[in-house]
Nucleic acid binder design. Sequence first.
RNA 1: GGUCGCGUAGCUCAGCUGGAUAGAGCAUCUGCCUUCUAAGCAGACGGUCGAAGGUUCGAAUCCUUCCGCGAUCACCA
Length: 592
Amino acid sequence: MSLQNDLTQKVIEAVKQLYEVDLPTVEFQPTRKDFEGDITVVVFPMLRQIKGNPVQIGTKIGEYLVEHVEDVSKCNVVQGFLNIVIADSYYLDFFNSILDDTDFGYVKSQSDDAVMVEYSSPNTNKPLHLGHIRNNLLGYSVAEILKASGKKVYKTQIINDRGIHICKSMLAWQKFGKGETPESSGLKGDHLVGKYYVAFDKAYKEQIAELVEAGTPKERAEKEAPILLEAQGMLRKWEAGDDEVVSLWKKMNGWVYYGFDTTYKNLGVDFDTLYYESDTYLLGRDVVKDGLERGVFFKKEDGSVWIDLTEDGLDEKIVLRSDGTAVYMTQDIGTAIQRVTDYPDINGMVYTVGNEQDYHFKVLFLILKKLGYSWAEQLYHLSYGMVDLPSGKMKSREGTVVDADDLIKNMEDTAESISQELGKLDGYSEEEKKKLYRTIGLGALKYYILKVDPKKRILFNPEESVDFQGNTGPFIQYTYARIQSILRKADNVRSSAVETSLDLHEKEKELLKQIQLFPETIQLAAENFSPALIANYTYDLVKEFNSFYQQVSILGETDEQKKNFRVQLSQKVGEVIQAAFRLLGIDVPERM
RNA sequence: GGUCGCGUAGCUCAGCUGGAUAGAGCAUCUGCCUUCUAAGCAGACGGUCGAAGGUUCGAAUCCUUCCGCGAUCACCA
């Protein structure tokens, strides 16, 4: 970073000296692998100010730099590109400066402003599936990246624990459950409740079919099926605070929460604070009433309240029903305000929600801005594409989902069978092995999902398993384990600063360059809310290391200085891999 | 129909705030384990960057139009 700033100054200085022209900026890019050099100045843009041949101009600037800048050892010009070779000592100085920084890349100080990251936010009537996994991994990772970039972060979720969908599960359990509990059946709580959600749907469809058979039009049958009416009645009772319904609701939700906690724990995600829809669904109405008085909203004849967003290129949107009850939007307005009240240092929120809600969040953010909240400028919808199956969309009701718990188990099993085939785990206890299979299996899954741009939809084919070779989590974990193996064998090498007169191997230099990019990569990932940038960075680093490992002997090096440096360099690469993967929520193994 | 997103190698994806001959992995084919872990390394094969125009010294990248896929446009959440 500082090198580029330095060079910018020097190039401007050179041009001033040589051509008496003040350049506003200088354009840099990393030098392509096929040319000699570390960093390249693009000469073309200068032609606007300097008349002449780009090759000549480049050559002259290059000569000036070699003469006047210590860290520039050589230059060459190809077409309009001035390739600059940076001295080895510069890279070794850099290496020495980060030697003791075990958290290299992370910003240590923390801003006073906090950002709240919401993710997961499931319904409590069915278990988590692959779509939730993408959501969870993204939200968790973005939160960790923001932290590493120096932000204070609160992780949260809103649990959709009320509404007609919950009543469906409850009703079906009452009707068909015969008192089944997680304890009595051995079923995980969320799966048990999900089972009755499916049972409801089955019964509902049967009733519709019967009604249609008896001559009722389909549309009416869908609205009048007795079991649906019953569920709606149950919702009314719930809202009225009926003891029996509320206690059933609490009981079944308890089962689900317990099940979710297990899945979250397995996935390795966590939350700092929780919000429940049952607590927040009434929020926001006062805000709307207040906004109505201030003219932000307007009332229609039937009493419903709307906001007119046509000037902003959007439509009119309802914010309060004619009977005065809240809609989804009302609730989200209220919840956002509630959060800032609960945590006054919040200045920004990230909502991890699928791209089907793009419009909703556009409207929500606009409304909050119009209501005049300063933090409304700092809201971000972390929108991601759906995870589809070859058969189409996942649908819980129809059982066409990739269940989160099953998938995790599946990945662990695959990791186990590959590990056993390779058979490198002599001396590991069963318990250690199990832990390792989990690390690798989850590493494969998490990396697979996080390495792709969140905006893109993912087509997941359960028939084809997630890869363990190439650009994958296990590949990177493997490299980490390799490094640890070297470090175990090199315990006589002491940690000490490296002599900067050392000649660097080409691969060593490439590694140092890549390590140097880590801090700015974290910042970039934070600005773009993109774990994929971290994943791609890590992959490049690891590829570079493996190439180095292959070409250069580390422990076999006879020159003690060099050996010492290579061991420490390997160690640093290991630290960066670990730090980067921590941002993705992926563990690294000592052996594999 | 309006709006938003996506379209890069057979498949999965990088690159997109404009720069050199568009990069990886998987798959297919060649080499490399008597030296630090072969879940690896080195190489071959594979591309009209959805299409056509435009801006520019220079376009996968920016603009326009069109095509394909997806989402969304409820007094559901």
